[in-house]
Structures are given as structure tokens and as C-alpha cells.
Amino acid sequence: MKARTAFAAILVGVLAVLSVLVVRPFLDYVLAAMLLAFVLRPAQRRLAPEIGARLSAFALVTLTVLLFVGPVGLFVRVVLSDVDDLPTSVSELPTYRSVERIVERSLGVQIGAQFDQVLGSFTSALAQRSSGLASAGVHFTLGILLLLFLLYYLLKDADTLVRWAKRVTPLPRNVQDDLYAEAEEAAWAVLKGHVLVATVQGFVSGLGLIALGVPNAMFWTVVLMFLAMIPIVGVSPVLGGATVYLVVNGRILAAALLVVYGMTVVAVTDDYLRALVIDKESSLHSGVILLGVFGAAYFLGAIGIFVGPIILALFKETVEVFVEYYDLT
């Protein structure tokens, strides 16, 4: 009996390692599919009794493509297409001439040749990596297709998957029920208090850039949404850079308006949403969120910004459930 148990454990361990190796190249897309399925699950529960599990899952995947995957894919395509349009000389950069004249008058230093050399080296390196960009594009396309297929089946067969997980998990059913309930509550708390607040704050900040005519305002709005998810950093770097840009271009009034807008509308939006959502529903400390964002982004890439805090929140809730039921204190 012991030999058979040991053989079964070794077999399961080997297959688990092989499964991880199979999933690892597309782990970020798998996690993104799981996250989207979790967010769309309440809608699936409402639609499935009316139109069926398959049709409701297909409708939600189509909606996801229209609202999320399509715009993201278009954004990535635009960014990649702009690589060929990068300036090859520093003199092509906006506002460069005025900055160059100021430096030369103040310090008597010629900066054009040095910057031309640095920028030329940078664009040459990008050109040499064109094959890498093409490979990344193929990987991105395959990953998106995988994400959509997984999202469809996760929505359609979610109940079957949960029943299987509960059946094979060697824990009492009441402990499992509490674990799933706490995990769902913790995940929603992080999504609302971390992702929702950052998205709204970044969008509101971007409206200020658009209204004041800052170049590439739509691109910077997306950047603001991601930066807002990072505690301590927030939207300040982009808003501060935009303010400096406006000052350098002689638009002093616009720069002042952006500063006032950031200190009033953006700050009030952030404080109000955090008081409404985070303080009531999430007990995850900002330091833990910061650790989750940085650590998971380093390990998983961009998707880690979203799932990192959720993983730490799930760990916290799991420890609390185990302590309660097994009296570990």
C-alpha cells in the first residue's frame, strides 16, 4: 500500500511539473482569462437561465472583445507602428530648440551632438530588435486567442469546475465553502478598491490632459490608469511631466489649470472613491498592495498588476480560515 501511494504521489508530482511547463509560456493570458471569468461570472449566472450557458458565455466573450480585447489590441498595434516614426535626431523632438538655446546661453554647453549620438544608438537598437517585435506579435496573437477560448469555457463550465475542485480537495466541505466565500469576497474587494479606483482616477486625470491639448493624451490616459494602481507613485509623474511640458511651451495658464485640476478634481475623486470602496470592503494594507503589484509584475508581467494583490489577499483569507477552523492560535 505504501509503495502504491508513493508511486501515485511521484506520478502526480511529475505530471504537475510537466503541466506547469506547458502552461508557463502563456501563464499571463491564463490568469487574465481567469480574472475576466471571475468578473463576468455574475452576468453569466443571470443570463444562463434565460438563453442557455453556451449562448450566454459566447455573448459575454463577444462583449469582452468589443470592450476590452479589441481596444487593447488596437492600442498595441498603434504603439508598435509608431516605432518606425521615432525621431532619429534630437533636433526633431518637440521644444528641443528652445531648450537647447536656454542651456547654451546659461551654461555655454553644446548639447545637440551628444544627444544626437545617444538617440541614434537608441533607434538603431530598436531596429535590430524588429525580429523580436515580430515574434512578440505572434505570441500576443496566440495568447489572445487562448484567452478568449479559456474565457468561454470558464464561463460555460464554471460550476462543473468548482464541483470538481471541491470533490478532489482533501478538506471538510464546510471549510471549503468558507474558503470559497472568503476568496470571492477578498477578490471583489481588491478589484473594486484597487482596479476600479485606479481606472476612474486615471480616466479623470486623462480628461484634464485632453481638455488642455497635451499631445498623445489618449496614450497618457492609459498610462495614468496603470500608474494609479501603484501606491505612492500614482498619477503624479504624468501630470507633473505634462505640467513641465506646458510651461516649456509657454502655456503658463494651461499648466496652472492642470495643477489646480490635479489638486482638486483628481484628488477629490481619488479620496471619495477610496473612502466609499476600500475603507468599507477591503482590509488589505497599501503596503501589501504595493508589494503585490511590484512582485507580481516582475514575475508575471503586466497581468501581475491586477492579480498580485488578489493573490496576497487570498493568502491572507486562507490563513484566517485555517486558523479559525483548526484552532492554530
Rank of each mutant, 00 (worst) to 15 (best):
L291M: 14
S205K: 06
I210T: 13
S89Y: 08
L276V: 05
A127Q: 14
K166A: 04
L276Y: 07
G240F: 13
A186L: 00
W164G: 02
L253Q: 05
L55W: 08
L147G: 00
A296C: 08
S282C: 14
Y96T: 06
V222N: 03
E100Q: 14
F122Y: 15
Q110L: 11
V307S: 05
A113W: 11
Q110I: 05
E100F: 07
A255R: 05
S98Q: 13
T199N: 04
G112D: 14
L133A: 09
P172I: 00
E100A: 15
L31F: 07
I51C: 04
L147K: 01
G193R: 02
V323C: 07
L146Y: 01
A37S: 12
T141V: 15
V319N: 06
V323N: 14
S135V: 06
L171Q: 11
Q114D: 11
R129E: 13
L155T: 02
Y325W: 13
V22W: 14
L284V: 10
G208D: 11
V266F: 04
L18G: 06
L290Y: 06
L40R: 00
A158R: 07
I310F: 03
G70S: 08
T62P: 01
T243C: 10
E100P: 02
F294I: 14
A183I: 02
G240D: 12
I311F: 15
L67I: 08
V76D: 09
E317M: 07
Q176N: 02
V233K: 04
F315M: 12
I305F: 15
G52H: 02
Y298K: 09
V23W: 09
F140G: 05
L15T: 10
I102T: 12
G202K: 03
S91C: 03
V83S: 05
R54L: 10
A296R: 04
D116G: 09
A217M: 09
V268D: 06
Y29I: 00
G213Q: 05
L154M: 09
Q176E: 10
L146H: 03
A186F: 02
L148Q: 00
L93C: 08
P309A: 03
D270T: 06
S282E: 04
T160Q: 07
L239G: 11
V288S: 08
T264C: 12
I51S: 04
L227S: 10
V138Q: 09
Q114M: 08
D178Y: 00
F75A: 13
I303V: 15
W188Y: 11
A33E: 00
L239Y: 02
D178L: 09
V78W: 08
V14S: 11
Q117L: 14
D85C: 07
A33V: 03
V83P: 05
A165I: 07
R167Q: 10
D84I: 10
A313T: 06
